[in-house]
Write a protein that binds this DNA or RNA. Structure first.
Lengths: 207, 207
DNA sequence: TTAATAGTGTCTGTTAGACACTATTGT
DNA sequence: ACAATAGTGTCTAACAGACACTATTAA
């Protein structure tokens, strides 16, 4: 039985909502190939490392981001779109929540979030990955409660509704939305209210 | 950037419906570890081979089966449940249609289909894979028309209904089922009818 | 008091599910 | 004629979607 040794890489699409827009993390390449172009964060995986852990560790080291959710998109073997001929690669996507601050890493122009409506040309086949990740994110939203990973621990129903409206690019009726999520999502009303708002404060909820 | 070389393997759950039962292909191991135990078919992938193609090629070579549908389940890196310490492995599932004959390979007791209700203990972590594949198969049925891969090219509505009843383990009302699939599945009535049946023959349909 | 958003209920159209009889073929 | 399965329509209950007003807070 053949036991070829292969290089395995991970490419990741990291989503975050900034100023009511869905954004994706892109990196400016400092080395060949495609030097100077934008692409998604990626790396080769080492032995003795699970994929999810590697994703979180590498992302923290390189971008100072701690992702709250990681999932797989797809795996490929040997489709020669990459000049370095990576043998096997894994596409993933991740979500970063509201509370992560855009501090140190943000001053490096090399790494920045970019609104999905204005994604630049991406090197490698990264545009395909982005599209697949975006589809997957939208479909996962309907089956499963990923919204929580975009939100802070305590949030108002309006914030929750906004997440859905941003991801799916639709407008909901407030009453219908609340009926819907009451029957679908395991969220609890807390005894706290939002503050520092110039209007009647809403109740805070948590998952 | 680390560029460790890893062995990549594929484990696959192959589904087929035999005598109105959902079955999975299991193999009896001839070599250590777990010699004599049953497990799922698996192999290491070689460079210059896409995963889907490798799956079809290897399965044909080893079991004489030509699968009509292949999909991915999950990818893992380094979880040391395997005595040989495979580094990265890919879980997949596949479907074999009605018309594939159980010929040559079936005489080898080493390779056989086993009803999902009577799966024996499987070596490695293959029982987990089987369970995940079964879940995925059921959920894919609701989103997407995989039923066609279980069926011959021309089929009656009753055969189609049976597939759904077997996979989901439910009973449908014939009229409601037909209304449902008429609105969901792109199937066409042909001008042919089934034959060699001791009752009124049904119309044949195709996808 | 005003500006701004929170919070709440009803009605209606569509969809999913229960249910029974006639039609056609082989023997 | 009989055995066996194909094929077909209606009624009802549940759910999804449209829709407008009162409540509470900060300034």
């Amino acid at each position: 039985m053949p036991q070829d040794l292969l290089r395995v890489s991970v490419d990741i699409v990291i989503f975050k909502i900034i100023e009511n827009q869905l954004c994706v993390l892109v990196v400016k390449r400092a080395t060949a190939p495609f030097i100077g172009q934008r692409c998604l964060p990626w790396w080769f995986i080492k032995e003795n490392e699970t994929i999810d852990d590697a994703a979180k560790r590498v992302l923290f080291k390189e971008t100072w981001l701690w992702v709250s959710y990681v999932n797989q998109l797809w795996v490929f073997a040997r489709v020669d779109r990459d000049p370095r001929r990576r043998a096997v690669w894994i596409w993933m996507y991740a979500v970063v929540d509201y509370e992560v601050r855009l501090s140190a890493w943000n001053t490096q122009a090399a790494t920045q979030f970019c609104a999905v409506s204005a994604i630049p040309h991406l090197a490698f086949d990264h545009h395909d990955i982005f599209l697949k990740a975006y589809d997957k994110l939208k479909s996962d939203f309907s089956h499963w409660d990923i919204a929580q990973y975009f939100l802070p621990k305590y949030f108002t129903l309006w914030q929750l509704q906004l997440i859905y409206e941003i991801i799916w690019w639709v407008i909901y009726d407030k009453r219908n939305f609340r009926k819907l999520i009451a029957s679908k999502l395991p969220i609890k009303k807390t005894s706290k209210k939002e503050f520092d708002v110039p209007h009647r404060p809403g109740w805070l909820y948590k998952f």
